[in-house]
């Protein structure tokens, strides 16, 4: 038999903590309507769903929340929140649950990618010299094989380029030939662009890891490079 809940024994420390960080989160306004759960692709995984997870927060089940792997199954896609009649910010709640895990207990793969990004500017951990070498190498192949693109020009850290292009580092590292079509399009459009080599990976695993410091550091380094060195007017992400 389930024990009745004794309201006077309620402590919701984690809820207070998260609500302080996201004042607009409105957790208390949940109507328990289940709209979020109905439209959430992560519902039922590990026996969990967004409404239930939120109930646990409001019931002070802090340990259970922190122990559930579900925080890493939800993708923080925001579909729940956009349908929620009370606009409850479940993705930020999940982000805060992730952040409440000891850093060394968070998923290895995400943590490793975040660490690499902090260290070498991209989640794959590739030194920027290798990135520049790959780019030059692929560009050479295209220039030689395709006369139409014999004047294809690819640059890194070109000061004053109008566009700084931010690309997922998996592309140059695991499928460098995929760079070609993108460059050709930019070439045909006559775009004035360059690859920044500081924090050049377009991905953001520190955000997924809920590593505030790492995320902030990456952004600051990147922005500084663009603002003070390259002076580009637009940063374009290839996604």
């Amino acid at each position: 038999m389930a024990e009745p809940i004794k309201l006077q024994e309620f402590t919701c420390d984690f809820k207070e903590e998260v609500a302080n960080r996201i004042p607009e989160a409105n957790f208390d306004l949940c109507l328990t309507c289940g709209t979020c759960t109905g439209g959430c692709p992560a519902s039922e995984q590990y026996g969990m769903d967004p409404r239930k997870f939120l109930r646990m927060l409001l019931l002070g089940m802090d340990d259970e929340i922190r122990k559930s792997p579900w925080a890493w199954v939800c993708t923080m896609c925001g579909r729940c929140m956009s349908a929620c009649p009370m606009k409850i910010n479940i993705p930020k709640f999940i982000y805060n649950v992730r952040g409440s895990w000891p850093r060394d207990k968070r998923p290895k793969g995400i943590r490793g990618s975040c660490d690499q990004h902090i260290k070498s500017g991209n989640a794959m951990g590739v030194p920027k010299e290798d990135f520049v070498f790959t780019v030059e190498d692929v560009a050479n192949d295209i220039r030689e094989a395709e006369p139409e693109f014999s004047d294809l020009e690819i640059t890194a850290d070109r000061v004053g380029a109008y566009i700084a292009l931010n690309q997922n580092s998996r592309e140059p590292v695991t499928e460098p030939d995929e760079l070609g079509p993108l460059w050709k399009i930019l070439h045909k459009a006559g775009a004035d662009w360059t690859y920044p080599t500081v924090m050049w990976g377009g991905e953001n695993y520190c955000m997924f890891l809920a590593d505030e410091e790492g995320w902030k550091y990456i952004m600051e380094e990147f922005v500084h490079h663009i603002e003070h060195n390259l002076k580009s007017k637009v940063v374009v992400n290839t996604e």
Binding site: A42, V73, T75, S82, P107, G109, F208, L209
Partner: peptide, 27 residues
């Protein structure tokens, strides 16, 4: 803006819960 997430977001591809990630993506 009402799409379903593919299930690879939020670090899920690197997050290790493969079976759940694929079930998520079945929709």
């Amino acid at each position: 803006s009402n799409n379903f997430c593919c299930g690879g977001g939020g670090g899920a591809l690197q997050g290790g819960h493969t079976e759940q990630r694929r079930a998520y993506g079945k929709v």
